[in-house]
Every structure is written in structure tokens, then in C-alpha cells.
Nucleic acid binder design. Structure first.
Length: 475
RNA sequence: GGCGGCAUGGCCAAGUGGCUAAGGCGAUGGAUUGCAAAUCCAUUAUUCCCCGGUUCGAAUCCGGGUGCCGCCUCCA
């Protein structure tokens, strides 16, 4: 089975075929850095990371770009000019700091979190403020081509010049107008027209351009310009959260196609929102969690990575602390597969036949790959990996197979990135305590034996008394 | 008002027309143990939100209802 992906644009799963053999060009809509990223944000970036890692597993070179939006989007495009209020500037006012300082600070936090969560560095993380010139060029081109028009220092995209507008989101221009809850901006030709460039001298983040001295880009042009600058006019996959479908990606599609003459992306993929405690997370409920919150509850970043990748990216998944406890237990089992493989290869209980379990391994690999190839069906792939544990516990795996199984397990973890696959080594203190406990048991000094065991438990070492002696693992 | 998604055991989560509904967590009983943990054995959805329909056959398709969620406004 080849890798199939669900394309939001066509609403169907299609085989993934990169335009250039062996290379996948992928653009991920990144965060707007006006606040500390939360677990909901992480989900869509983790999805982007999973996609990238799966493409790499398949042997493709992935040219991945994830932008950082450090220009605030207007909170309300249609009434923009009056107060120039946008997320970044609003935050800047709240913190009484320079907006550029704000975005730098939150960008650093974002990058720290990504690193902690094991997200691989993309080829580039362009910042919108570094691509103002490219945006202006694109806007000028759209004006020249008759797809955009100026009203004073503002520039709007004329949706009537792009009949496919609405295809991605399933919205019709007429319905958008009817359902619009914002005041109609009189200077636009059509209420659905969207801003490419805005001017407002009260705006804090502003640039002098051909459109005037106090301008700033509209919400959508940034990504179109950065994708073009770094990946070219046409890319293979464009991703984002489900909220990006409309208006952001719909607008990107329109403006890029009109400016470049080719479709921006062949496939559009969107991650569903994460829910917390069964509903939308909200500040008033106090459940807009961040990585430090999760770590404060005694979990590691990899637990969170697992929790957010455990469900299919297009299904709603829920986050609760009870689920995190379950995640911890499950991850211990996945870690244990590696522990068991290392133990076996170090002379542990292997099946007599070195080739024993070959069929089990083959089934595991095909289950894993078929799951991932089916639009990144992580739950199926994970179930396949978990299936390795039982045969190992039952001693049904031979040494040669274990060798291959470990190699595969490492590759599988190159995709998931939350399993501990390296061999666990004991330090002198651990070994001494184990020896002390064995001696105490021999002497039937149960309180000394239990003391040693308690000390090890406190160090995160779990002992297992098996019929063949004592083994241990780090939990 | 317009558009869209989802509903599977105590919990999480696969399955999208056809053998006994994956897998995990948890729970219960037993074995094992100095006691535990781990492990092993057994049990844990005759049933997939509800009501109709199509079909030889549906969790899977269709119609209606209920509930949750999303977009149309900043949001991953």
C-alpha cells in the first residue's frame, strides 16, 4: 500500500505523489506568537512533525517549512482601521512592552517547547516580519493582474476574480455574506473581499512601502509569500489546524493561484482541534494547559507527545489528567518492548530457534506501515507495536529475529519519537542495591530486602523476580 | 441563519457491507511470591447514541431524532 492522505480540498484519500520524485515539499502553518503555546497548539505541530517523519521513513527528502507569524493578525478584518487592534499589539499593550519584544519572547518559548516535545527542526522557520518585501511584491502583482484593488493605503483581494473561492471550506460567497456578523466595510467592493495590505498610522508594527508609510500585511498574504520564497510556486502538502481551513487557507489558495498561475498546494491536510475535559479549552475553565503545566503534574514531555499523537489526527481527541495516567502506563509497555529486546540480545531467554517469531515481526511491521500509510493512522500503527510485547514475554522470539525487531523498533520510533529504545544501563549504586537485596533475601532478612527494594523504587527502578532470577528496568 | 464533523465496553481507541467487533488502560477471580511488583490463566460490548428503512446480511449505507464539537469572527 502506498501512502494515502486525506485531502481537505477534494474530501478524499488520495495516493501521495510528490511532484519531484523523492522530494516532498511541505508547508506548515505555524503559530502566531502572541502568547505561550498550549497543548492544543502542540497537537497540530506534532501532527506536522509526524507527517514529516513518516515521509522520511518512506525515504523521501522532506523540505519542510513552518512559519512563525510575528505580525499580529487583526482581530477583526472588516473594522480594522479604526483601532488597529490585533493579538500581538493587544498583548503588547497588556504587558506594556514593545510588540517585537513580545513576539521574540514567545517565539523562544515556542521553540523550547517544540524541542522538548521532540519536534524535528524544519528546513526553515521563516518569520513573517522578515518577508515583508516578498509580500509587497506579491500584492503588487495581484493588483496588476486585476485580482486586487487599492482603496487609499489599503489593498483588498477581489474574490469575484477567483471563482473557486470557497472550494476548500465548502463555503459559498453568498452564505458568507448572509452569515457575516461583522459590519460591512464600505470600502470593499464585495463583503467577502479580504485584506492584503492595511494602513494605519496608530499601528505599532508597521512598514513603509509603496502603499504608504504606515502599512502592515493582511492575515493571509504572509504564508503565501513565505511558501513561495522558500519552497516555490507549487508545493506538495500544506498543513494547518482545522481552524485554518477558512478563511486562512481559502484565501491563501486564491491569492497564490492568482499571483503564481499554479495551485499553491496539491494536498491540504488539517488536524482537528484538541478538546480538554470534553470541551473546548478555555481560560475561564483554567484548562488551557502548557508543557510546564503537564510537567508540573509529573509527566514528561514525551508523555504529552504520546497523548497528542495517540489518536488519528482528523478525529477529535480529548485531554484529561486521567488519560495522562493511562498514557504513562501504556508508554511503559512500549518502553518495555525495547527493554525485553535488549535483555534477550544480552543472553536473556530467547527461543531455541533463532528464527522463531519471524512471522510475528513481519506482521508487526506490515501492521505498522499499513496503519501509517493509511493517512497516518497512528492508533493502528501503535497497536501493531504493542503486539510485539506479548511474544517477547512468552519467549517466542529467537535471537536473529530479536536483532531485526530491535532495528525495526528503532526505525518505528524515528516516526513516533516518544519511546525509550536505548539500552538501559545500571549504575554502581543500583547494582549494589540489587546485590544487597539478593543477599538479604538469601538470609531471609525481609526488612533489609524490602528496604533495598524501596530504595530502588524511589530511584525509578522496578525489580522483577522471575523464575530465572531478578531483572530490573527503569520506569 | 448558512456550512461541516463526530457518537463503539468503566476509560482511551481501531474497524466504514459479510468469519467469534483490533489493540491498550483499568477492574475482578485464580496461579506465582516471604510480602509485593512483574508475569501467567480466566472473566470483563450477543453488541456499536435512539427510531425507522435498504439488504440474504449493517457498527458500517439511507431517512428522522438526540447529544457533543467545529467553521462562518482571532484561534492549532
Amino acid at each position: 500500500m502506498t501512502f494515502h492522505v486525506y485531502n481537505t480540498l477534494t474530501k478524499e484519500k488520495v495516493p501521495f505523489e510528490p511532484m519531484e520524485a523523492g522530494v516532498a515539499r511541505v508547508y506548515n502553518c505555524g503559530p502566531t506568537v502572541y502568547g505561550r503555546p498550549h497543548i492544543g497548539n502542540y497537537r497540530s505541530f506534532l501532527f506536522a512533525d509526524l507527517l514529516r517523519r513518516w515521509l522520511e521513513y518512506l525515504g523521501l527528502e522532506v523540505q519542510q517549512v513552518m512559519n512563525i507569524t510575528d505580525v499580529g493578525h487583526l482581530t477583526d478584518d472588516d473594522v480594522a482601521d479604526s483601532d488597529g487592534d490585533d493579538k500581538v499589539e493587544a498583548q503588547a499593550r497588556r504587558e506594556q512592552r514593545d510588540p517585537f519584544e513580545i513576539t521574540r519572547g514567545y517565539t523562544d518559548m515556542f521553540l523550547e517547547d517544540m524541542k522538548a516535545l521532540g519536534v524535528r527542526e524544519p528546513l526553515a522557520r521563516p518569520r513573517a516580519t522578515e518577508y515583508i518585501d516578498e509580500m509587497v511584491v506579491m500584492v503588487e502583482k495581484l493588483i496588476e493582474a486585476g485580482h486586487a484593488y487599492r482603496v487609499g493605503g489599503n489593498v483588498y483581494f477581489d474574490v469575484s476574480t477567483y471563482p473557486a473561492y470557497g472550494r476548500l471550506s465548502g463555503n459559498r460567497v453568498e452564505d458568507l455574506v448572509a452569515g457575516s456578523r461583522v459590519e460591512v466595510n464600505q470600502e470593499k467592493r464585495h463583503p467577502a473581499d479580504f485584506a492584503l495590505w492595511k494602513s494605519d498610522e496608530a499601528h505599532l508594527m508597521k512598514w513603509e512601502t509603496v502603499f504608504g508609510p504606515d502599512g502592515f500585511p493582511g492575515w493571509h498574504i504572509e504564508c503565501s509569500a513565505m511558501a513561495k520564497a522558500l519552497l516555490g510556486d507549487q508545493i506538495d502538502i500544506h498543513t494547518g489546524g482545522e481552524d485554518n481551513v477558512f478563511p486562512h487557507h481559502e484565501c491563501e489558495i486564491a491569492q497564490s493561484a492568482c499571483a503564481n498561475g499554479v495551485p499553491l498546494a496539491n494536498v491540504w491536510m488539517h488536524a482537528k482541534f484538541l478538546q480538554v475535559d470534553g470541551g473546548k479549552m478555555s481560560k475561564s475553565l483554567g484548562n488551557v494547559y502548557t508543557l510546564p503545566d503537564v510537567e508540573g503534574r509529573g509527566f514528561e514531555a514525551r508523555h504529552l507527545r504520546f497523548a497528542l499523537l495517540r489518536g488519528h489526527y482528523r478525529t477529535q481527541i480529548n485531554f484529561t489528567w486521567a488519560i495522562m495516567d493511562e498514557i504513562r502506563a501504556r508508554l511503559e509497555n512500549l518502553d518495555e518492548v525495547a527493554v525485553l529486546l535488549h535483555r534477550l540480545l544480552d543472553g536473556g531467554a530467547a527461543a531455541a530457534d533463532a528464527e522463531a517469531g519471524r512471522d510475528v515481526l513481519a506482521k508487526t511491521i506490515s501492521g505498522f506501515e499499513e496503519g501509517m500509510n493509511d493517512d497516518l493512522n497512528a492508533p493502528v500503527a501503535l497497536a501493531a507495536l504493542e503486539g510485539l510485547r506479548k511474544p517477547l514475554l512468552e519467549g517466542q522470539v529467537g535471537e536473529a529475529v530479536a536483532q531485526d525487531a530491535l532495528a525495526f523498533y528503532r526505525r518505528a520510533n524515528e516516526v513516533f519519537g516518544f519511546i525509550e529504545v536505548d539500552k538501559q544501563t545500571a549504575d554502581g549504586e543500583v547494582e549494589a542495591l540489587i546485590a544487597a537485596r539478593n543477599a538479604a533475601k538469601e538470609a531471609k532478612d525481609w526488612s533489609a530486602a524490602d528496604a533495598a527494594r524501596d530504595a530502588l523504587t524511589a530511584m525509578g527502578i522496578e525489580l522483577q523476580d522471575t523464575p530465572n532470577g531478578v531483572v530490573w528496568r527503569r520506569k
